[in-house]
Amino acid sequence: MQHRMKRMFGFVFMSIFILSLIACGNADENESKEEALKETKKETIEINHELGKTVLEKAPEKIVVLEFSYTDALMTLDVQPVGVADDDDPKLFMDKVRDQLKEYTSIGSRYEPNIEMISSLQPDLIIADLNHHKDIYDQLNKIAPTIVLDDHQADYNQMLDNYLVIAKALGKEEEGKQRLEEHHQKIEEAKQKIGETTLTVLPAVTNPKGFFAHSDHSYTGSFLLNIGFDDPVKSEDSYPQLGLEQLVETNPQAIFLLPATEETIVDEWGKNPLWQEIDAVQNNKVFTVERRDWALSRGLLGSEKMIEDIVKHLGDQ
């Protein structure tokens, strides 16, 4: 307890110190920072996130991530997490992430990650999601410095912002910026290959009983919008459920199906002559892609895979 108290005091002290530095103004801060650097050769990392400010004494080495997109981000920065909330199912990682990912401990569901196991991993940084983990922020903070980002509701641009925060937290701000530059380049190149983006494109998660469109308020939809495609649904909801009649009326010119199960409602709809009335079907532009690439990974790698799929299917031949 005493030790922890000390650490707590240290923590509080540090925060006050830094706050006062900020209060002194920018120039001052830079100076003193440089001084501190010279004196101790130790850099502190300071991160603003959804639930406040977290200060790390050095770049963290043992990191626990509680969302798939964070794993994605770590992979691009060549950092291995010690614990991942992977819903206890490694099949949910996209291939590229799984290949790069070495040994890690599964800490269970993303909704209720196993806090005991997080603690037993003795991490020095935890990256959590605002919606799912705000209630346990205090507990996580007692285990290790925790940063909380809004990932669950994030669209593509927010994800890019989050990416920089993560890169900074890992002490790899420069690499992060570089990688992001690279990412933008990749996207630009891909855009060239795609050429015309006048189509209305609809990504949708399907299962045996439902067809859930991902509108421009969702991550996947916002990415497509960013490339220049049009969202045919135009809904305030992120994932509106469509019936066949509505889908035919919406009449997307290309559909990307993200099946959650082996058999889906689309098998059934395919038998209906109405299915043939959809432009996407008539143009042969219904594609099945991996849900884990498109809807779960939600990071740089995920988006790059997404645009790769799009180039493959919709690019100028």
């Binding site: 307890m1 005493q2 030790h3 922890r4 806090i115 005991e116 603690s119 037993s120 507990q139 007692k142 285990i143």
Partner: peptide
């Protein structure tokens, strides 16, 4: 109160 299980016992369970 200050072992490797402190957090789990005191703060969690």
């Amino acid at each position: 109160k200050d072992t490797s299980f402190s957090f789990i016992v005191w703060e969690y369970r």
